[in-house]
Amino acid sequence: MTTKRAVLQLDGLTCPSCMTKIESALAHQPGVEKVKVLFNASKAKADFDDSKVSAEELGQVVDKLGYEVKKIKVKDTVAAK
């Protein structure tokens, strides 16, 4: 398996509680190891196992919560990080 990091650029987040929502929804997906939602940058960063889930699927989860996903980037995580 390889761990990748998905960076989802969302449409402006305005309520701090949105953060909690997105964070816990993503964390409950299979294969997701670490989630961080940046409130002010309106970004969600998730480290995930790409054999279990795809970045597009993670995007759909956020979309279902009612937050528009503007752009998805996938990066290989460096082992040191």
């Binding site: 309520c15 509680s17 909690t20 929502k21 816990s24 919560l65 009612g66």
Partner: peptide
Amino acid sequence: MIHAYQSLRVKVISIE
């Protein structure tokens, strides 16, 4: 109410 419902689904009691 939509916001309240969405939060509740992920077990968050929101201001909404």
